[in-house]
Amino acid sequence: MIEHLELFFKSIFIDNMVFAVFLGMCSYLAVSKKVSTAVGLGAAVIFVLGVTVPLNWLLDQYLLKDGALVWLGPEYADYDLSFLSFILFIATIATMVQLVEIVVEKFSPSLYNSLGIFLPLIAVNCAILGGSLFMQARDIPNLGLALNYGVSSGIGWFLAILAIAAIREKIRYSNVPAPLRGLGITFIITGLMGIGFQSFGGMLTGDNEPPEEQTSTTVEAKDEKEIKKELEDKEKTVSYNKVINK
């Protein structure tokens, strides 16, 4: 349970799709002019990530990983098909998006009207493929966590696009220097929001009680790349904690 909660908050705030790894920036910048459309796209992203990440987890686990084919028989244990993961992941995503579009159109026309136009756009949204690739790179251990990771990354993305759309609606009334208007100021605001989100980095590592520590190290030992990236941050938080403890 605790690892679910941890992954949930980690994916929303610390490894936020937009602010920490810049995924889905294209649609983030293009569709964030109005709050209502931003909400539609955000919801569609949560939905599609929630479907494709677990699906690709299964593919990765039983088809692509080094030795994943062992369930076919011991003679298949040496196969490593992981070089195929790009093409299989993107094929899964494109098919799923198409399938979801058809199903939603058939069973819930009202949902289709609000999400429908965004679905084709999503097939090529980097956040979706990125979700699957990060799931693979971080070795998410089981299907439940994969589902959790997909949904919570989607929520993180949703939050980001909602926030920027709200800011852009307001900033229309401000006197922004002409060359910065539109794209430029959006970039800079996103950067500032990203710096704000960096402060969440201490959220999970901040607690030094032994039982907490154990769970957090098991989760974090798995994503070495992540650690490399956040080394700077952690150093800061560690020294920060020391100051606080004193």
């Binding site: 810049f22 500032l192 990203g194 989100f197 960096q198």
Partner: peptide
Amino acid sequence: IPPAALIVVG
């Protein structure tokens, strides 16, 4: 840190 890239592009 990552957000600096956004500001540089801006």
